[in-house]
């Protein structure tokens, strides 16, 4: 019978503590809209920050609260926007699918190295003591500070140069700030996309000395372009995306082959092609060929 006392005390104790927990859960309860929770579940959940908010939870909260149609999750793209719009009862704006490109093509075989670097394996760490590990002070350093930042495994160092794995890249843009040389850039995905893979602003002769893949500013591409989309600034060619139709003529004439083609897997939208009569030859057919058809199935 004397066992009764400890039983009573322990029961009372647990009862009181239980009450405390109950009170606490009521008093400190965080009210949340169940809709926000649903939206959070639909988001990719990588907390990459590409939307401009610190994490998926915050993006969901803002989206549900403001019902702002311009709030886009670049990772989920248009498919996700459509689904979110359905749930929230609004029509979301179209998201342009983005991808990351590298404005450098100098690897260990094509580019001369400056010194035998033995410090910390990080691109920023190199910049404190050298202009770069390679003799080109403007291109990719190649030690991979950006690789760790990518949550989608889309970046890889191959032979001392950074490469983007297109299937994995979702265009979140987190890697852009991680490059001390600013050779990573976000660009709109198209079925065919051309870009100049060089950032060197040295004179052509100097560039040629240290990198066989570097742009020498010869301006052959400028002359070849029929759409005025290429120009050379500071001895380096740049393609203007708003004017470029991705015909590929500049790439054909480039003597150092530094203009790259990237082909993205996209749902091809059949659009009507504006006939230009220029017969630029980019599609290897003259424009007036009957084979074009009404829907202009060129897949641009």
């Amino acid at each position: 019978m004397t066992i009764l006392t400890p039983i009573l005390i322990l029961s009372a104790l647990t009862f009181i503590l239980g009450l405390c927990i109950l009170l606490a859960s009521k008093k400190f309860h965080v009210k949340s809209d169940p809709l926000i929770d649903t939206v959070i579940l639909m988001l990719p959940g990588a907390n990459c920050g590409a939307c401009g908010y610190p994490g998926c939870a915050q993006f969901a909260e803002i989206l549900v609260k403001t019902r702002d149609t311009s709030k886009i999750c670049p990772v989920g793209g248009n498919d996700l926007s459509y689904e979110l719009g359905r749930i929230l009862g609004i029509k979301m704006d179209d998201a342009k699918p983005l991808s990351c490109i590298v404005l450098c093509n100098g690897n260990k075989t094509t580019t001369k190295f400056l010194a035998d670097y033995k410090g910390i394996h990080d691109c920023w760490a190199v910049k404190e003591i050298l202009p770069s590990v390679k003799q080109c002070a403007y291109g990719c350093v190649g030690l991979g500070s950006c690789v760790e930042a990518c949550k989608y495994d889309a970046l890889k160092i191959v032979d001392g140069l950074i490469k983007v794995i297109e299937e994995n890249c979702v265009g979140c843009g987190v890697c852009i700030g991680k490059c001390p040389q600013h050779v990573l850039k976000l660009t709109e995905k198209k079925v065919k996309k051309y870009h100049v893979a060089c950032s060197s602003v040295d004179k052509g002769a100097i560039t040629r000395k240290y990198c066989t893949n570097g742009c020498i500013g010869c301006m052959l591409c400028v002359k070849a372009c029929k759409f005025d989309a290429v120009k050379v600034e500071n001895f380096c060619a740049i393609i203007d995306d708003s004017k470029c139709v991705n015909c590929g003529l500049c790439a054909k004439v480039c003597p150092v082959k530094c203009i790259h083609l990237t082909e993205y897997a996209m749902a091809s939208k059949k659009i009507a092609v504006k006939k230009t009569d220029d017969n630029c030859g980019g599609c290897e057919m003259p424009c007036s060929v009957k084979g074009l058809g009404e829907d202009g199935t060129l897949g641009y």
Binding site: G119, I120, D122, W124, A125, K127, E128, G177
Partner: peptide
């Protein structure tokens, strides 16, 4: 360990963060 390099790296990264 490359202690001084890590400290210098930290100084640079902090300066970057401040600049951003």
């Amino acid at each position: 360990r490359d202690l001084v390099h890590w400290i210098k790296y930290a100084k640079v990264m902090n300066a970057n963060i401040k600049a951003i």
